[in-house]
Amino acid sequence: MKLDLTGRTALVTGSTQGIGAAIATGLARAGARVGVNGRDEKRVREAMSRIADQVPGADLVAVPADVTTPEGVEEVARALPDLDVLVNNLGIFGATPAMEITDEDWRRYFEINVLSAIRLTRRFLPGMKERGWGRVQYIASDSAVVIPAEMIHYGVSKTALLAVGRGFAKEAAGSGVTVNTVMAGPTHTEGVESFVYELVDEQLPWEEAQREFMRVHRPQSLIQRLIEPEEIANMVVYLASPLASATTGGALRVDGGYVDSILP
């Protein structure tokens, strides 16, 4: 299969590191013009440099903006007025005992993880529909359906994205625009290695350490290793491509079999 996004313009929110950076790299490799987003311009430029090293000749646009605000969304629109692919990757997480999650915590998680994606969708979906082609994606998590006891506010925000994706897919029905949610499982991102070594023998080589961590602490996983960000990016790039034209309104799992269910 040839995943060709030549001539298409994409935005990946929160793409200076981790899954977002991997998605931006994958879209650039497929030929898309990619907007790299973060709040700090220096970090955006550094991320672009790393992507360019991996994809020589990549067509990248710096989009430093706080997309959790209406003003930030308009900054994005000025930089990328005719967006073809919108990947709502930005999100925060953190462990807090259930009874200690404050009203402000709930609001903050909803504002960043959910409402920012809704605002961007409202801003760019109409143009996609007018042009008769577009891709909107939301990066959710296995936590959307396996709510973590230690961070239910995070889990609920990801559950909300499943509904948001399904709802906007109906709004885009028959227009040539697809809308989907990608559910990522336990992923090898920045800081995870130190976290793993807090829980397993620090003398173990990394490959053995992560498998021990998954065996003991994430036994639901069927691949019994952490997912690499590039593996999640592969799904996102496919869904962004013309080859995925019949896939919409879905919640697609890249979770290594973590969720013990046939359907989300």
Rank of each mutant, 00 (worst) to 15 (best):
E171A: 12
A24K: 00
L243M: 12
P264M: 04
M48L: 13
S245K: 09
T96A: 11
G256T: 11
P97F: 09
S49P: 00
Q220K: 13
V136H: 04
V87W: 01
A246I: 15
T13I: 07
P64G: 05
L263H: 06
L204D: 14
H153W: 08
G94I: 09
R39P: 03
A32P: 09
V145G: 00
R45K: 15
G185N: 07
T159A: 09
M214E: 05
T96I: 14
P205Y: 13
N89H: 10
R43I: 02
A28C: 01
R253M: 13
L239V: 10
D59S: 12
I23G: 01
G165L: 05
L60W: 04
E104Q: 13
Q224H: 10
D53T: 07
M48V: 11
A184P: 00
A21W: 01
E74Q: 12
V146S: 04
L80K: 00
V196W: 05
S245H: 11
Q17G: 04
R225E: 15
T248Q: 10
A22I: 05
T96W: 02
V192G: 05
S15G: 06
A21K: 14
S221N: 09
T159W: 01
H153T: 08
N113G: 05
Y197K: 06
V85P: 00
N89E: 12
T247K: 09
D53F: 03
L11M: 05
I19H: 00
P64S: 05
E212I: 12
D82W: 02
I51M: 00
H188E: 15
A65F: 02
